[in-house]
């Protein structure tokens, strides 16, 4: 499995460390349901069999966090984006959605 880092190019997956599901978002600690929300944030995952977005860290390279779209059935990687770009895109248009 090789990951195409947007900064360094294609590298072996042993250069990266794995965090997991990139779709989880840290909840609002002041919300009334914060306890339940933080439980889900810390422990509940969907374990997708198929394409999924995950956070990988280029530890032996540029130290960037990446959002990697990877198929867990085949290990095929279809997309890699800097996590910063993904987070900013998530923030800007719908900041009042919650």
């Amino acid at each position: 499995m090789r990951i195409h880092c947007p900064y360094c190019g294609e590298r072996g997956n042993d250069e990266f460390s794995y965090l997991g599901d990139a779709s989880v978002v840290r909840p609002d600690a002041s919300a009334p349901n914060a306890e339940d929300a933080f439980y889900a944030f810390a422990y509940e995952r969907r374990n997708v069999a198929g394409p999924t977005q995950e956070l990988w860290y280029h530890a032996a390279g540029c130290h960037a966090w990446l959002v990697v779209t990877r198929n867990t059935r085949t290990h095929e990687i279809s997309d890699v984006k800097p996590a910063q770009d993904v987070a900013l895109a998530r923030q800007s248009p719908v900041s009042s959605a919650s």
């Binding site: 072996g12 042993d14 794995y18 059935r73 290990h75």
Partner: peptide, 16 residues
């Protein structure tokens, strides 16, 4: 191997 997978095969870094 240390990442979510249903592929029933691993990768070379762990083999090494």
């Amino acid at each position: 191997d240390g990442y979510n997978s249903y592929a029933q095969r691993g990768n070379l870094p762990v083999v090494e």
